[in-house]
Design a protein around this nucleic acid. Structure first.
Length: 277
DNA sequence: ATGGTCGGTGGCCGA
């Protein structure tokens, strides 16, 4: 089984590319973020036409998350327990959806950006990550064998070499100590970044800003992750980042991250089928 | 050429 995560930066603008990517990537489960659509605007047929079930959660033109699966899609959950809102703390934004796919509970997560250090949105980001950690801790306490994947755009670069140049991030979000501590708290709660081992840095990224020719200049950030619970971690057998998908006209600013389980590799593009002679 | 972007929206904001 292959599980992928991808911040698509608008499901409608990216519909054709998402379909083309599904056709060649051979993933069983795809979690997407930043669909930028309400449920009634979401182009579900991209997925259903290809034999995937899909669950989407979108409240406005902002945020929006979805999970598509061809190995079952059960027990869809909107948001996680304790998920804070922005502005009104009682009204969570469309940043988290989960479903059980092939025995794995997959969460598609879009962590708040933070905007600027000291901004209300930055405090919100830290609260949001802390609440996610607390929800994860509670889940694993109740069921240590649970197979849970926290996947998505975490908007945190955990290591210095997860950005092209730390000097360029002086005073910026995504690399501050509190953000990294919040990310580390998640991993210490039992949710490990399982793609990194197969995609070591430096210079390995999942996001390149549209501005300033970042992609050709290789100025990227590693901010998209697949975090696996202990029981799921043991099944991971490969991972990859599909840098190719960042190329060309109409690309998202993020590349898909793919993880393979049970001996399956994490190659972004399926290898040609073996032919018998 | 020393700066170069998108998407959704509605006449800017968010990333």
């Amino acid at each position: 089984m292959r599980i992928a995560t991808w911040n698509v930066n608008s499901a409608r603008a990216r519909a054709e590319r998402i379909g083309a990517w599904l056709d060649r990537s051979n993933v069983d489960v795809l979690a997407i973020q930043e669909t930028k659509a309400r449920d009634d605007q979401f182009p579900a047929t991209i997925f259903t036409d290809r034999g995937y079930e899909v669950a989407h959660h979108g409240l406005s033109q902002w945020n929006g998350v979805a999970i598509a699966s061809r190995v079952g899609l059960a027990d869809v959950q909107i948001g996680f327990p304790g998920q804070p809102g922005y502005g009104d703390p009682e009204e969570p934004e469309a940043r988290a959806i989960a479903a059980t796919c092939g025995g794995v509970q997959v969460w598609s997560l879009y962590v708040p950006n933070g905007r600027e250090v000291g901004h209300d949105h930055y405090a919100y980001k830290l609260r949001w990550l802390e609440a996610l950690r607390d929800a994860g801790t509670a889940r694993l306490a109740a069921d240590p064998d649970a197979q849970i994947a926290y996947v998505g755009d975490f908007n945190v670069a955990p290591e210095d070499h997860d950005v092209w140049d730390m000097a360029a991030f002086e005073g910026a979000t995504h690399v501050t100590e509190p953000e990294r501590a919040a990310f580390t708290a998640l991993t210490e709660a039992g949710f490990e970044d399982v793609a990194r081992h197969y995609t070591p840095g430096p210079g390995v990224y999942t996001y390149w800003d549209y501005k300033g020719l970042s992609f050709p200049k290789r100025k990227g950030m590693r901010i998209d992750f697949v975090l696996a619970s202990p029981a799921l971690r043991d099944r991971v057998s490969g991972a990859g980042i599909d840098r190719e998908e960042r190329k060309g006209k109409g690309a998202s600013d993020h590349a898909p991250v793919i993880v393979g389980l049970d001996g399956v590799d994490g190659e972004p593009v399926a290898k040609p089928k073996e032919t018998t002679k």
